[in-house]
């Protein structure tokens, strides 16, 4: 083994020091080519390789890699689109949610406002009615008082008139019986005058 291994090492060194083109010239393999066949360049095989690789590249490129890469791109695009769509929908949902919450809050606020307004209006109405009732009762009372006053005045007048008539009647009777002097006459008319003045004063 050692001899052959060393030969292989020597061959490697020879290969490293020589250019591939120089090696192509010393092509020598086949029957009887021992270890140096390891480093001999077989142009036929090289051309075979290029041809096979070329055909492989053409067919695979056209019917394997291109559809595969296209499908992968389509799948990746689909996944990306799905992610984008999900994000969009999430944003939309959040927007709608915020909107609904805002509307809800607005509604609640409006309801409270309405309630407050209603309460206030009721209060105002109550106060107004109270005020009105109070004013009305005051008016009624006032009217009643004034009516009473008027009635009293009228009554006093009537009483005074009655009193004068009574006094006159009484006086007439009294006078018809014993009144005849001048002095008496003066006394009565003075008295009546005094009454009329007092009645006007009252």
């Amino acid at each position: 083994m050692t001899a052959n291994t060393w030969n292989g090492v020597a061959g490697t060194l020879a290969l490293i020091s020589a250019s591939p083109l120089a090696l192509a010239a010393q092509e020598d393999h086949g029957e009887g080519g021992g270890w140096d066949a390891l480093f001999s360049v077989d142009v036929g095989l090289m051309i075979w390789t290029v041809l096979v690789f070329g055909v492989l590249l053409f067919i695979l490129g056209r019917f394997a890699w291109r559809p595969m890469l296209t499908a992968l791109d389509a799948r990746e695009k689909g996944i990306q689109d799905a992610i984008d769509e999900a994000n969009r929908q999430r944003d939309e949902a959040q927007r709608l949610m915020a909107e609904h919450q805002a509307q809800l809050a607005d509604g609640r606020r409006q309801a409270q406002q309405l309630m407050a307004d209603g309460r206030e209006a009721a209060e105002r109405l109550r106060k107004e009615l109270e005020e009105k009732a109070r004013a009305e009762s005051a008016t009624i009372l006032d009217n009643a008082r004034r009516e009473i006053g008027r009635e009293r005045d009228a009554a006093v007048e009537t009483v005074r008139r009655e009193a004068v008539d009574l006094a006159l009647a009484a006086a007439a009777r009294l006078v018809s019986e014993r009144l005849d002097g001048e002095r008496d006459r003066q006394l009565i008319s003075g008295y009546i005058e005094e009454l009329g003045r007092g009645g006007a004063e009252a």
Binding site: L56, L60, W65, P67, A71, L72, R75
Partner: peptide, 18 residues
Amino acid sequence: TLAIGLVVARTISRRHVT
């Protein structure tokens, strides 16, 4: 290589696009 490439490409592009 050809067989693998063509069969896999067929599988992926026909049935596993999504």
